[in-house]
Design a protein around this nucleic acid. Structure first.
Length: 291
DNA sequence: TGCCAGGCCTTCC
DNA sequence: GGAAGGCATGGC
């Protein structure tokens, strides 16, 4: 038993759904320990177990542990009320939320999320995770936890001299030059990360789209999973699929991304991102049937 | 073997 | 401004 174990009471929170719904890539399920995950976030390793309405947390770093966890898992937002509100949008959302209640949007590190979702484009989750793990172990800071080595995601300074070829050696494929270019831009403070909270969703999207490898989908994911912007609606192949089935059946697959965004803005509004995440997870896990 | 993956960039109209 | 093609790599 570690000295820095803490317990936190939670409501409307599902650890498994939150970590396995595709918004993060650095958590692993612990074998033989039910509902327990280990992940590297920000400046530390976390081991988190959920048992009912209690989280049991240990870490290699005690400093501000509860604050870090509360912020990372967005524990101070009232998701129970939000789920109640969005469940009234329509029967599809109601059913999806019922299936995957307790998904929360993480507040992940901006730089890590930026690079992770550049890597995610036209890629699959296992390979994305593998590439990020390789980059971290090559260039990030080593930390020890429970006798094992873990690596923090590298800072932009730690990636300063990494070449395109070296990124490619980490398995990122053609995205190598996007990473190189974006790291350079971040080193030159092209985006002021201290000012992100002061920007509107539109202002921030505009800035993100100036980075190589960041298109509309990746920009929306970054804003949703690291900037607390809940009013975005990232559209990937899965979301296109689920929207086609649930809301655009008469279009027979001919609807455009613009059609989908307009529908989300009009019907899901400032909760678009939360609705999106439930729909995404439902279709990907087969909880909504393809037909 | 061919298709797909949490798309984006470039080129060409 | 929109459409089409190319792109690394691993899993199935």
């Amino acid at each position: 038993m570690l000295l820095n174990n803490i317990e936190i009471k939670v409501d409307c929170f599902n650890l498994k759904y939150t970590l396995e719904c595709g918004q993060c890539f650095r958590w692993e399920k612990v074998e033989d320990e039910p509902n327990t995950f280990i992940g590297v976030i920000h400046d530390r390793v976390l081991k988190v177990k959920q048992d009912g309405d209690t989280l049991y947390i240990s870490s290699n770093k005690e400093e501000n542990l509860e604050d870090v966890v509360r912020k990372y898992f967005d524990l101070d937002k009232d998701y129970r009320s939000i789920e109640k509100i969005i469940s009234k949008f329509d029967k599809n959302v109601e059913k999806a939320v019922k299936n995957t209640s307790g998904i929360r949007h993480l507040k992940q590190d901006f730089f890590e999320t930026l690079l992770s979702f550049i890597i995610s484009s036209n890629n699959n989750i296992p390979r994305i995770s593998k590439s990020i793990k390789t980059i971290s172990s090559k260039y990030g800071t080593k930390v020890m936890f429970e006798g094992k080595e873990y690596y923090l995601f590298p800072t932009k300074e730690q990636l300063k001299d990494v070449t395109s070829q070296e990124y490619r050696d980490c398995g990122v494929g053609f995205r190598d030059r996007y990473l190189k270019s974006t790291v350079e831009d971040m080193l030159n403070n092209k985006i002021d990360i201290n000012n992100i909270d002061n920007l509107s969703t539109e202002e921030l999207r505009k800035e993100l789209l100036t980075l190589k490898g960041v298109g509309p989908k990746v920009a929306d994911c970054i804003m949703l999973f690291s900037c607390n912007k809940d009013d975005v609606f990232p559209i990937d192949v899965w979301v296109e699929r689920v929207m086609s089935i649930l809301y655009f059946r008469e279009y027979k697959g001919k609807m455009t991304k613009k059609d989908i965004i307009e529908y989300a803005d009009k019907n899901f509004g400032k909760y678009s991102g939360i609705v999106q995440q439930h729909l995404f997870y439902n279709i990907r896990e087969g909880k909504i049937k393809l037909s």
